[in-house]
Design a protein around this nucleic acid. Structure first.
Length: 483
RNA sequence: GCCAAGGUGGCAGAAUGGCAAAUGCGACGGACUGCAGAUCCGUUUCCUGGGGGUUCGAUUCCCUCCCUUGGCUCCA
């Protein structure tokens, strides 16, 4: 049995109940990178958004096939490769590897397949040929164009009317096109560019065609969810609809269009062309993958999100620390005695809440993936744990595990509270820290607070934070977000 | 100009045709502490862009204006 959920669909502009084409299968395609340079924080946001979508659907019983394409050849890659004296395909591979490393760090690993555009040249040629045969495309001197006027539905996703568009404002209009709105399906090779043989002469794919050739091959003529950033709505996704529905004669191409909001910096979209870019890797290094993930998920996925290291990210760091604190108390307590440790049982009403909260969290997320609301509920749970903490002393291991259920939900679905958050110091190291703590305790007991503070300060410089709790002193890594 | 999405407290960000609007951060006061931190309690009670309208009642529905962001063939 799969869980029902609702999702905002950009095409119908409403939150709709999700109905898979073939339950419990779900085909999910998300527009991925053109890796001509390092990925930035904005790319990371979209990746995490759809990572949570995939995680949630899998938890809810759907069998998700998540495909994220890689545009490993386009004009920018060719230009950049030329500027750097590198092969564009090799350049793409290089930056793609960086992307995968960032995804690993962010624990965003739900993608099943990253197809590269140039691995699907036969499928692309096949689809372009079909479009020509069906009268949607025409050939001019080795170039192939899509004739937009042949596809009456063009504009249905973005609400654009052709006659109101301003063509040629950013680029010269290609004089070979029959109409300014026509777009390139296949580009005739220029000297020195990577090229593949085709019925129209050597060349390479246009920007939009790889997506539909790949999805037709991997997910079928029609599939469930297509995701990407809102900036891709027009013309890219509009072109995808025109290509796929034109080629297959079936519509709709997808049942649900999901668009993630832009990450902004100084009130503008983060983009290389604007020059306000912070690389994803730099963000991860600076704030840590957990804080960054939290920052992304602490906002509505469709809304713009402002990136400000001194403000929004600092806030995220603080907020995440207080979200993690009760979880960490539980975890430490559990590590102390282990799962099987005997002790008191939870008051029934608390056990009940703990057991039911994950379901409530599922329900919250099932309403258009409101991660921020789920996080609010987790805060509520954390506060409950904190309030009850003194009364919960001496709990059994099983009781502690029960209290942790909402956090396990968050790890599974939101990717927060991963185990790597905890200090995994070698035993010898812990022993040394413990020794310092004991030395400090003796100093404190004889009233030598200067010495005690000196020890605490030294440990802090080594990245270790001490906290006195009653007669006990605990330590943790500063990096974990508390200090 | 056109299309789309938005405008809620110091900030981030929910919700709802009706108890002065969740949650978090920050701030302030208190408890605890040798100090700090963590935690707890209290305060941050005159916050829904402007103007109309519908309604017993609107932040929520309608109209209009203003503003912001994205897009109008490079974009996640």
């Amino acid at each position: 049995m799969v869980r029902a959920f609702r999702v905002y669909d950009t095409l119908s502009r409403e939150v709709r109940a999700f109905v898979p084409r073939v339950s419990p299968r779900v085909g999910l395609f998300v527009c991925g990178l053109t890796p001509y340079a390092e990925a930035h924080i904005g790319h990371g946001r979209t990746a995490v958004t759809f990572d949570v979508v995939a995680r949630a659907l899998r938890r809810w019983g759907y069998h998700v096939f998540y495909v994220q394409n890689v545009t490993n050849l386009d004009d920018r890659l060719i230009d950049r490769g030329r500027a750097e004296g590198r092969d564009p395909l090799e350049l793409a591979e290089f930056h793609f590897q960086g992307w995968i490393r960032s995804m690993d760090q962010l624990d965003a690993r739900s993608v099943n397949l990253y197809p590269f555009a140039t691995d699907y040249i036969p499928e692309i040629i096949d689809q372009v040929s079909t479009l020509i045969d069906r009268g949607f495309a025409y050939v001019v001197d080795g170039d192939v164009y899509y004739e937009v006027s042949k596809f009456p539905d063009y504009g249905k996703l973005s609400g654009q009317k052709l006659e109101a568009l301003r063509f040629g404002t950013r680029e010269e209009i290609d004089p070979k096109k029959r109409a300014p709105e026509d777009f390139s399906l296949w580009k005739a090779a220029k000297p020195g560019e990577p090229a593949w043989p085709s019925p129209w002469g050597p060349g390479r794919p246009g920007w939009h065609i790889e997506d539909t050739a790949i999805t037709a091959h991997l997910l079928g003529d029609q599939y469930d969810i297509h995701g990407g950033g809102t900036d891709l709505k027009f013309p890219h996704h509009e072109a995808e609809i025109a290509q796929a529905e034109g080629a297959s004669g079936k519509k709709p191409l997808v049942n649900y269009w999901m668009h993630g909001g832009m990450l902004q910096m100084h009130g503008e979209k983060m983009a290389k062309s604007v020059g306000n870019v912070v690389s994803l890797d730099a963000g991860i290094r600076k704030f840590g993958p957990d804080v960054l993930r939290f920052y992304y998920l602490n906002a509505q996925y469709r809304s713009p999100l402002n990136y400000d290291e001194g403000k929004s990210l600092e806030e995220a760091r603080e907020s995440y620390a207080s979200l993690v604190a009760p979880y960490r108390r539980l975890r430490e307590e559990l590590l102390r005695g282990g799962l099987t440790r005997p002790g008191r049982e939870l008051p029934p009403e608390i056990a009940k809440t703990a057991t039911e909260l994950p379901t409530r969290l599922d329900e919250i997320l099932a309403e258009d993936f409101q991660t921020r609301e789920a996080i609010a509920a987790l805060y509520g749970w954390g506060r409950m744990i904190n309030e009850w903490w003194s009364k919960l002393e001496g709990l059994s291991g099983a009781s502690l595990v029960t209290l942790g259920a909402p956090y396990r939900w968050a790890t599974e679905v939101l990717g927060l509270f991963p185990e790597r958050t905890g200090a995994k110091a070698p035993a010898e190291f812990s022993t040394l820290v413990q020794l310092a703590i004991e030395t400090r305790a003796r100093a404190r007991s004889r009233g030598d607070f200067a010495e005690a503070d000196r020890i605490r300060q030294s440990l802090l410089q080594a990245g270790i934070v001490l906290e006195d709790q009653g007669s006990e002193t605990r330590w943790q890594w500063k990096r974990d977000g508390v200090a």
